[in-house]
Amino acid sequence: MASKNSNKTFCCYYKNISYMKADEKLMIASSKRVVIKIGSNVLTQDNGLNLNVIGSISRQISMLMDKKIEVILVSSGAMASGIKKIGLSKRPDEIPKRQAVAAVGQAGLIMEYEKAFERFDKKVAQILLTSDDLSNRKRYLNARNTIYTLLSWKVVPVINENDTVAIEEIKFGDNDNLAAMIALLLDADILITLTDIEGLYDKDPRNNPEASLIPTVESISKNLEKLAGGIAGPLGTGGMLTKIMAAKKVTAAGIPMIIAKGEKPDILTRLFAGEKHGTFFVPKKGRLSRKKCWIGYSLKPQGAVIIDDGAVSAIINEGKSLLPGGVIGVEGEFKEGAPVEFCNSNNEVIGMGLVNYSSADIIKIMGLKTSRIKEKLGHKPYDEIIHRDNLALTAECR
């Protein structure tokens, strides 16, 4: 970023405050269901698990549970645990070996959590997921119901990606994304991501002493994403950018998020006591419905439709459905009922929806009034390309 514009650029992202704003404090204090994600860098020590951190986090979560707060834990650390148990010097390069190491390590990870929580008379349950589990509506609902049942039993769900069976097509990619998906799945009140640095900085604080913490982010711009892309995480699969993308998902759905330093003493209890730590991401007003969260963030797009400015305005500002007249282009091949992105004329993604027509049929009727659908196709099951009940806005415009 150009230095002369740096202050002007950043003022639209955050407000440089040292105290917790009243609404931030209220959002945290009123949270009754919390997703907590712990990163690899926090959990790892000497190529193995940091048992002190596991013990501390387990104690703090137990204290929150004693205050009637439901906690879902998304935990990295399986790879580090497996490397230590097998006696390897580093993470293997080959995918089958990495998956085997994760399988060994996952057992060790859940065992350590079980021992740590047992000290506070709490039980844990292991849940391993792939993105395929959440893209299938039936399995999505089954996963949600299982986790709800565990929470009703006062059991801590410990969730991780099922690395042993995951292939590229069904991977979440990183636990930041997984944590965001779980927060959406369970309609959480807040997502807290614990990492190895204090929060989001304007530069990488590990190699730049002039770096400044950004305490509050009110909107996530392309410039902010670019900034975060330069702050990597050496041990995990995700750096700061994956955390920003997770924040983008949950805040668009109306859920706040915090990035904070996981090794800071009593970080969770201090946050819930009203202390300001890390970076707080302000959520958009209004919550997406559970169905729209599933459409917008759990499904993988099978194509895209390009829509004109009038259709963009009607969908965003008036809550309208997408009609054939607003479509100006189609990308990819897909069938009726497929999840499809809809983009503006600059190819910027506005949201995701379930289409009522195949790509071939949309090409035939795009730009036309609904009265001409039957003339072109020989039938007219729907007026809408995407009904408003089956579309979710995922862009900053929401």
Results as ranks from 00 to 15, higher is better:
residue 2 A to I: 11
residue 5 N to D: 14
residue 7 N to D: 14
residue 8 K to H: 07
residue 11 C to D: 15
residue 16 N to Q: 13
residue 18 S to I: 11
residue 29 A to I: 07
residue 29 A to K: 15
residue 30 S to Q: 15
residue 34 V to P: 00
residue 35 V to G: 00
residue 36 I to T: 13
residue 41 N to I: 00
residue 46 D to K: 14
residue 46 D to V: 04
residue 47 N to C: 10
residue 50 N to T: 02
residue 57 I to R: 02
residue 57 I to Q: 07
residue 74 V to E: 03
residue 88 L to M: 14
residue 89 S to F: 05
residue 91 R to W: 03
residue 92 P to K: 05
residue 98 R to F: 01
residue 98 R to W: 03
residue 105 G to L: 08
residue 108 G to F: 10
residue 121 D to W: 03
residue 123 K to F: 10
residue 127 I to W: 04
residue 130 T to N: 14
residue 131 S to F: 00
residue 133 D to H: 12
residue 135 S to E: 12
residue 135 S to H: 01
residue 137 R to C: 02
residue 139 R to I: 08
residue 141 L to R: 12
residue 142 N to Y: 04
residue 151 L to P: 03
residue 154 K to P: 01
residue 160 N to C: 09
residue 162 N to I: 08
residue 163 D to F: 06
residue 164 T to A: 14
residue 172 F to T: 05
residue 175 N to A: 07
residue 186 L to V: 10
residue 191 L to K: 07
residue 194 L to M: 15
residue 215 P to Y: 08
residue 216 T to N: 00
residue 218 E to Q: 12
residue 248 K to G: 01
residue 253 A to H: 05
residue 260 A to D: 03
residue 271 L to N: 05
residue 273 A to Q: 13
residue 274 G to C: 09
residue 284 K to L: 10
residue 286 G to H: 06
residue 291 K to R: 14
residue 296 G to H: 06
residue 296 G to C: 03
residue 300 K to I: 13
residue 306 I to T: 13
residue 309 D to P: 01
residue 314 A to C: 06
residue 317 N to T: 07
residue 318 E to M: 11
residue 323 L to V: 05
residue 335 K to I: 11
residue 336 E to M: 10
residue 336 E to C: 09
residue 342 F to P: 07
residue 344 N to T: 07
residue 357 Y to G: 01
residue 357 Y to A: 01
residue 358 S to P: 08
residue 359 S to V: 00
residue 361 D to Y: 09
residue 375 E to S: 13
residue 388 R to L: 07
